[in-house]
Write a protein that binds this DNA or RNA. Structure first.
Lengths: 138, 138
DNA sequence: ACTATTTAGTCAAGCTGCTTGACTAAATTT
DNA sequence: AAATTTAGTCAAGCAGCTTGACTAAATAGT
């Protein structure tokens, strides 16, 4: 319960910070998509794999992000079937907002725990096997 | 991401252990209901509050658990409007299975981390403010 | 005391995010 | 050059949740 509560607090805290920075039309689930798209973009299939959903569902999520101006569909450089989903300027701005928000939450935790204990938690969790996919829906 | 991954691993691990013990008709969300019902039962409204959903949704969950034989609806001892949801023998058996399964996961983590480091994580998380409600759906 | 309001629970309808199934076009394998 | 696989979309359906409306019991107001 402690672990689940902490995870909830983290997700909700980041979400709240992102909202406070003006991105009010996104839900936490979109953040997980941004994580995959941020570095160099990704295809719908890659996004689906990352989110642990079908490619149809991932395509719908992508549609929504395109419609709201966070993502752009570009032709794929090497595969004419595929399309590369990449962040727009707005998408990058939102990503930065999420990073700042996450830092705020972690700073609060560092204040409560001390930096050493927080680093200890991080080190411990990193030693546990963690699934590549994030499936937040139970 | 480490925290979310660990939470996912924990939930999925417990769920898998419960399934392996023969309770194949439940999802992790039901486990959160059991947590609230286990000690002395609860009303639909209390369950709704615990799960962070409307009482209509909690009532549907209760219906399902009744239909599957895990929960019983009894008249409330002091309030004729309310009905007390209590676990059946099968419900208690499932609760025990979940406890065993959780112990297994934690034992695996203790093997990976050492008992001291695991206890440290537990102590650190307990110092962070944790919401009473578990909202697993992002 | 008796009226007014709140509270516990259910019924009904609707929405959202996901699923399965079917399909086209491009890439890859044989 | 044909057969198969892969990327993506369209369409329909489902599960779990929501809002809204209602009944009956408890509680509050005067």
């Amino acid at each position: 319960m402690l672990l689940l509560g902490a995870a909830s607090t983290l997700v909700d805290g980041i979400h709240e910070g992102v909202r406070a920075r003006g991105f009010t039309d996104l839900r936490p689930a979109h953040g997980f998509a941004f994580v995959r798209l941020a570095p160099d973009g990704a295809t719908v299939a890659e996004l689906a794999d990352h989110l642990g959903v079908t490619k149809q569902a991932a395509s719908q999520t992508a549609d929504e992000l395109v419609r709201k101006g966070y993502v752009e569909r570009r032709p794929h450089p090497t595969d004419a079937r595929a399309r590369l989903l990449v962040l727009t300027a707005r998408g990058w701005a939102c990503t930065r907002a999420a990073d700042e928000s996450a830092e705020e939450v972690l700073r609060a935790w560092a204040d409560a725990l001390g930096p050493d204990q927080l680093a200890g938690v991080r080190a411990a969790l990193s030693r546990l096997a963690v699934p590549g996919r994030i499936r937040p829906t139970w």
